[in-house]
Design a protein around this nucleic acid. Structure first.
Lengths: 188, 188
DNA sequence: GCGCTTGAAGCAATGCGTTTGCTTTAAGGT
DNA sequence: ACCTTAAAGCAAACGCATTGCTTCAAGCGC
């Protein structure tokens, strides 16, 4: 989301961008992530390669933009009635999304084609947003809740660290352990 | 560290590998990370490009190998006399290494050209190794210490998460906070 | 110690992804 | 309706990636 936001919305640029993004998503499922190439995407999008190079720089940055788009949560976290259950449910779903093959691929793409860190920051912002909803709901019920930063440190960070650096043995039980260590104790 | 370990040590292959790695390190500081290219590295190493392509696959994997090499700790963690101080010192140094521009670059490179996750796993193993030394020392003193997994979750993961996803506002105080939250409480 | 086997490096040609100057188009403002 | 300007199209040149074939040298059996 580095350059595409400064285009005039509704115009030709917007059509080109939508067309290119769509082409990436289509080709990703047709020929696979590895076979993607700028000329290929350009042909499918009905554009010339130079257009893509000038707007996105290279394939990595384009894929990074598309990946962030796909990592955006579609629905707000479910309301299970209390903080602990809400966090459990959210953390489990988050872990499952991030450990899935496609999730891992999107994370990698988002990180790798991201010179200034904007896309990675957006991913973190998505998680923070979701957590904020959960915590605000808890506060509304009168429960005392940790702050967003703490949940990021204690739940999101460990999950992402393992996804990236220790790909083995990640299951939903681990997500619940992390939540338990956070709200189950009086720590902090 | 995927293919290079299966070469016969001492022979021509070993010389070629050493020469290529050296060429990468030299050129990285001379022309910069972005200007690196396989033919360039090959020329400096006195090798033909095809040799590099056949041994490493592509530039990303070669850089990943070199990055992991550079992320290996040179010295065991310092002994400050007690667990808390040891962890403080180690976490501060770890954070500083990882937040430095070169550290960030190495992490990205290590993750980037790592199809099977071996290199990323090696990075985590380095940290676990260092932490294990600290914890074993604490146990030898009779202190009760958390286990390695807990330190990875509570200190290493948050640091790495912020380095990768939230590049702003990371200082050594944050490392100390993380350690304090871990050994300062009776949690776990 | 000598030749054989085998894996790795050198070589060279080919294809294609990338880059770039110039031209053309179209969106938005006057 | 015209003018301005940013972005897309076009095409050529460059250089990196890929690959079949050849050559070399380390390790091993005789």
């Amino acid at each position: 989301m580095s350059r595409k936001t400064m285009v005039r919305p509704g115009g030709r640029s917007a059509r080109v961008q939508a067309s290119v993004h769509a082409a990436v998503r289509e080709l990703e499922s047709e020929v696979g992530r590895e076979a993607l190439t700028v000329p290929l995407v350009a042909a499918r999008a009905g554009v010339t390669p130079s257009t893509i190079y000038r707007r996105w720089g290279d394939l990595k940055e384009l894929l990074s933009d598309v990946a962030v788009e796909r990592l955006r949560p579609e629905t707000p976290p479910e309301d299970k009635g209390n903080l602990r259950s809400d966090l459990d449910a959210w953390a489990e779903q988050f872990l499952e999304e991030m450990t899935s093959p496609s999730g891992r691929a999107y994370i990698r793409d988002a990180l790798l084609g991201d010179p200034d860190g904007n896309n990675a920051g957006q991913c973190s912002a998505y998680a923070a947003e979701q957590i904020d909803v959960v915590l605000a709901r808890a506060a509304g019920r009168g429960e005392d809740a940790p702050d967003v930063e703490t949940v990021l440190d204690r739940v999101v960070a460990p999950v992402m660290y393992r996804v990236l650096f220790r790909p083995d043995g990640l299951d939903t039980a681990y997500a619940r352990e992390l939540v338990a260590g956070l709200v189950g104790s009086a720590d902090r």
